[in-house]
Design a protein around this nucleic acid. Structure first.
Lengths: 335, 335
DNA sequence: ATAGGATTCGGAATCGTTTGCAATAAGGGG
DNA sequence: CCCCTTATTGCAAACGATTCCGAATCCTAT
């Protein structure tokens, strides 16, 4: 049986309320008795029961993070940022993998509410029905959405500036003199990727680009990038630059080009998005748009902490983080 | 204010104890009243407060996982397995990143104990002092160590058969006719890598290999693999096969050889260990020893659940999981 | 010396559950 | 018809903390 404040009270001859006050160094306990209590607590090797504490104070000092799959290196990075910030604030983080399944997501949320988590970090609610979203918003826990720019009235968000990133990619390829440019992206409903595409195309259009621009939709994965690239190069062998909507697709593109005997960057320039750890490892090292993944996780946790502590005025907040061009070796001037 | 069983009791005209029993469908409540209570609970949109429950039952229904860094894809995979199994058992998982810092690890453990977690999954205790380890063992929570084969009396373990994996690598390279073989590994104190090296060397020795065998120690990372390979090929250009102690080092080796103009597998065969997701993505696709990462996480969670539920006899348990050779394209017959 | 404010402390309620025990109701055998 | 099981329910005490409130003590200024 573990030591409780009752034991400490008995052992040090004071009431449990005094022990509690001493332990939390609350106002109203004499220095001397505080010292004595603390000494006894240390001697008995006491550690507080946070569950009991939570019952009374109605805060569990835990946050939850629901991602689609922690094995996605993007989320791993975000998660690390979120955990570090939570920990720094004295909270711990429970991890949930939803696979983007709406049912699983709602089950997680229900379970988390029962556990009285103080806030929830989620990477998407896009696939939730309107009704489910309302249910979430009505639940009362603070929620911040990761990676969702569409300013929502019910939820706070933190997101990278995907549109600006798309524009950066366009500007860069234009500056290198490319004219036949393709954009490989994911399913149309994918918000972030759509933003990137929009920024990309808008910039090209604004620059009066006279080039042929091709946009191909497919799976936003390694094999998706691979397949799209094969298709692209079969249809338009004259392509000189590719903007892949994320690094994984870019890796697939590299593979496809390797297999087709097209060299990167000698024959075709390639730029990705995300700046995954692997981007610098792959050959050739991938030029890409850096998303501040760790910072996104950190900022989201910090925002959630403020919300959970009622330190910020109620209502939803929105944070848009900047992106950055990382120049490596997968792009080259058009000859 | 949330709905409690007290509200349900009032609303349905029975005592809270009956409500509690009905909700848990415990023995001793009439079908009819149970039905009524459940209906009222549903109508009021009741969900139980697990914190209060935990206070009384002394189980929090949460497990914790302490890894060095979730960004390491190996741990991401293990974590996913662990979380799935925990969830399947009705537990959730709090994630901790220790960076292998002993102080952080102990802080995490202390915090987790205060939160009354029912069990802890850790990836290593090797860097803890003897005293800290005893302290851990004395804490009373079930602990299972991931990826630590050294059968410990105080802790349960689940681990892949690193030694057998090392032997497999040796057998494979021998079968391909290689004679000048090098092994790139990490720091000497790293238990798992040491096991791999032992299996590897033992097999070569047993096969009466007359070859020159070189073992190089360095950092067990991408750049470690890169550096060691540069050094190796400078000293011994005649090397025909390399066994890297993990895939990350193998990736580094690929990069180094690329830079030195040595082709894989035409000039030099390369085999890794882990079978990371990326192993099939990199060029050339890496032949490697597969560790059942997901299963390790899952098995560890399941073992921990049994321990936490007192379903297995006390004392430590140990599980060794098999490994497997994954043949891709980074190795070739010696001409 | 004493009123009165500030400190310091103890008592007890409370958070939302579970659970042992007693009480009551129901059913069955003699 | 009564006694004895057995099923169903209520009562109340936990679990381990926090916190409001009032009592006791101390200090200080008049």
């Amino acid at each position: 049986m573990a030591i409780t404040i009752k034991d400490i009270a008995r052992e040090s001859g004071v009431n449990i309320s005094t022990v509690s006050r001493a332990l939390n160094d609350a106002y109203g306990v004499h220095q001397e008795t505080r010292g004595h209590v603390l000494a006894v607590a240390a001697r008995l090797n006491y550690y507080p029961n946070r569950v009991a504490r939570g019952l009374k104070t109605r805060r569990s000092h835990t946050l939850a993070l629901i991602v689609s799959d922690i094995r996605n290196p993007f989320f791993a990075e975000v998660t690390r940022g979120a955990e570090d910030a939570a920990r720094a604030g004295g909270y711990d983080l429970v991890l949930c993998n939803s696979d983007l399944d709406p049912r699983k997501q709602m089950e997680y949320v229900a379970s988390l509410l029962e556990k009285q988590v103080d806030g929830i970090l989620m990477n998407s609610v896009a696939d939730l029905s309107r009704k489910q979203q309302d249910q979430l918003a009505a639940s009362g826990v603070p929620i911040v959405l990761l990676n969702r720019s569409t300013a929502s009235k019910s939820f706070s968000t933190v997101c990278a500036d995907n549109e600006a990133g798309g524009a950066m990619a366009a500007q860069y390829l234009l500056r290198l003199g490319h004219e036949n440019i393709a954009h490989l992206t994911g399913p149309r409903r994918h918000g972030n990727l759509t933003d990137r595409a929009r920024g990309f195309l808008r910039f090209l259009k604004a620059a009066n680009a006279k080039q042929g621009i091709t946009v191909l939709h497919g799976e936003n994965s390694f094999s998706g990038g691979q397949t799209l690239t094969q298709k692209l190069l079969r249809q338009q062998p004259e392509i000189s630059a590719i903007f892949a909507a994320n690094d994984l697709m870019a890796f697939g593109a590299i593979r496809a080009m390797l297999e087709l005997g097209r060299r990167v960057p000698e024959d075709i320039s390639l730029i990705g998005f995300d700046n995954l750890e692997l981007a610098s490892v792959v050959h050739p090292p991938l030029t890409t748009i850096h998303q501040p993944k760790y910072e996104m996780g950190r900022a989201a946790s910090e925002m959630l902490l403020r919300l959970a502590r009622n330190q910020s005025k109620p209502g939803s907040q929105h944070l848009l983080l900047g992106v950055e061009l990382i120049e490596r070796e997968s792009c080259r001037k058009r000859l």
